[in-house]
């Protein structure tokens, strides 16, 4: 009985909701640290980071855990919401819930659904391009080889430069010498360029920026209730709870705010140049 209780019971489902939620909070902090590099203007460093995040085995394991957590958190949330709706088949003719609870705490399912839609579109726009897009641009640099004559080079992962017209591409990033037909290096996928193009798009850049900022607002409200709530679900309610609540509120405001600042900076050209 005990084992099934941890999966199927009302309290068991709450444990999983809390654990996956807290893991996703850690993911948010990590993801934010990576994203903040975008406003410091060094495209190569950002692309190196993007390559590391998509190839390092430990990071890969963490990313699979993140996908699983998102799916589990969403499915568990849907199951709990269905049960909760069933628990009150007839609604009150007059209800005054604002007198006893915050609107964020009462609307976690709605906020969560908006976040899920955001995650899917966000992954289509960036994650899927990074992983699967055949036409994913590679990072190049224009170097003046002789006075008045500039040439375009790929930057290789080994730290060198390969003239763009001297190589052809294989497997998305492999650089093959057109004469010798051997692999001479690997180029960086230019996620930095994709991101800037997305938020600076002439037609839709402003709309994308606004939608992103709104999504972060929704995330803030979700975290405002979710962070401390997770600890309560796991049975942590003691003398540290007031401090934990304050930390949760700060986390819920600061993390989404910093995320939201990035596309705004990109769109309005507030990039810190070296």
């Amino acid at each position: 009985m005990a084992k099934s209780a941890l999966l199927k019971s009302s309290i068991g489902k709450k444990y999983w909701m809390a654990l996956t939620g807290l893991f996703l909070c850690l993911f948010l902090a990590g993801h934010l640290a990576g994203n903040l590099q975008l406003i410091f203007g060094d495209a190569l460093k950002f692309n190196q980071y993007a390559l590391f995040m998509t190839s390092n085995p430990a990071v890969k394991l963490l990313s699979y855990l993140t996908y699983l957590s998102i799916i589990f958190h969403a499915v568990d949330g849907i199951l709990l919401t269905i049960q909760n709706k069933k628990a009150r088949p007839i609604a009150y003719a007059m209800n005054n819930p604002q007198k006893n609870s915050s609107s964020a705490s009462r609307n976690m399912a709605v906020l969560g659904t908006v976040i899920l839609v955001f995650i899917v579109t966000h992954m289509v726009n960036f994650w899927a391009k990074m992983h699967f897009d055949e036409k994913m641009p590679l990072q190049t640099v224009r170097i003046e080889v002789q006075p008045g004559m500039a040439q375009e080079f790929y930057i290789t992962t080994a730290g060198g430069y390969m003239p763009k017209d001297g190589v052809e591409l294989k497997n998305k990033t492999d650089l093959i010498d057109i004469n010798a037909h051997v692999k001479v290096g690997e180029a960086y996928k230019d996620l930095h360029k994709i991101t800037f193009a997305f938020f600076k798009d002439e037609k839709y850049g402003l709309i994308f920026t606004i939608l992103y900022v709104l999504a972060m607002g929704v995330l803030a409200f979700h975290l405002l209730h979710g962070f401390q709530s997770a600890f309560q679900s796991l049975g942590v309610n003691n003398k540290f709870t007031p401090a934990l609540k304050t930390f949760g509120k700060l986390f819920a405001i600061i993390v989404p705010l910093l995320f939201a600042i990035i596309p705004v900076c990109i769109h309005f050209n507030f990039i810190l140049k070296h």
Partner: peptide, 19 residues
């Protein structure tokens, strides 16, 4: 374990910590 099992069987909803 028994009280929570009975609570679930009776059809009560789940706590979302609204307070």
């Amino acid at each position: 374990l028994n009280m929570v099992r009975q609570m679930d069987e009776e059809g009560f909803g789940n706590c979302t910590n609204t307070g």
